[in-house]
Simulated scan of single mutants.
Amino acid sequence: MKKLFKNRRFSVLIMLLFVIGNAHAQTTNKDTVKSKEDFSDDWAALSHYAKENETLPPPTEGENRVVFLGSSIFERWKDADPAFFNNHAYIDRGISGQIAPQLLIRFRQDVIGLKPKAVIILAGSNDIAANKGHITYERIMDNIQSMAELATLHGIKVILCKYLPIYDYPWRKGLQPANKIIALNKLIEAYAIANHFTILDYFTPLVDERNGQKAELTTDGVHPNVAGYKVMEKVTEKAIQEALQ
């Protein structure tokens, strides 16, 4: 009888230990889940460059710091030809896939906060590609104008880009973006002229007979290869000199 009682006590003890252990594991798991940072509200990916911005020192006296704000065209540039950025006071703040309103949201953190002398704004192609929905020229220009106005307010020279030619998007075929890019570039150029901003023409030196990119200068008809970036570097340097003179 005593032996049976002891066995029951032992069984109860084991069950209690199992329940307590399981409860502790569940609590720990819940705590772990809760401790993970939630970035679902970071639609514009402010977290992408947040740490780099924190460690970036302020510009030195006489430094001609320039921020490149855009999407994948700019983000891939620093990997294709890092020397172009390393040998100058150029800061790449491109994020692949972003549309104009996302650039606007990032403008304070990734441009104004870095205290550059000039900003190069390349926007509109992903909007046309309908990456995030259907967007009009008016909405694209609203965002570009807001960025330009913010830059001007903070004493930052504005360089607006005529977008690179694109005949077709590999990931969204059939949108016929060539003429849409041309139409957007006309709006950007007209706005830049009216407000005395520098125009950086990426379209003309890269365009082929179909109003797409020259085959020898691109990887996929949208993004330049190293040779394409070398062409872009020449016109970029010229535009920066013009803006800062």
Rank of each mutant, 00 (worst) to 15 (best):
K2F: 08
K6M: 12
K6G: 02
N7F: 15
L13G: 00
M15K: 01
F18M: 08
I20H: 00
A25W: 09
T27S: 10
D31N: 11
V33W: 05
D41R: 10
W43P: 02
W43S: 14
K51N: 15
E54F: 10
E54G: 06
T55R: 14
F68S: 01
S71E: 14
P82M: 06
G94L: 02
P101L: 07
Q102C: 01
L103N: 12
L104M: 06
R108G: 12
I112N: 13
K115L: 07
K117A: 09
L122W: 04
S125P: 02
I128C: 09
A129Y: 15
A130Y: 13
A130P: 10
I135L: 11
Y137Q: 08
I144R: 00
E149T: 12
E149Q: 12
A151G: 06
I156M: 08
V158D: 03
C161Q: 10
Y167P: 01
Y169C: 03
Q176A: 13
A178V: 04
I188C: 08
E189G: 00
I193H: 06
I193V: 14
D201Q: 02
Y202Q: 11
V207W: 05
E209S: 12
K214C: 04
A215V: 07
L217E: 07
T218V: 04
T219R: 13
T219P: 02
G221I: 08
H223I: 01
H223Y: 03
P224S: 12
G228D: 04
K234P: 06
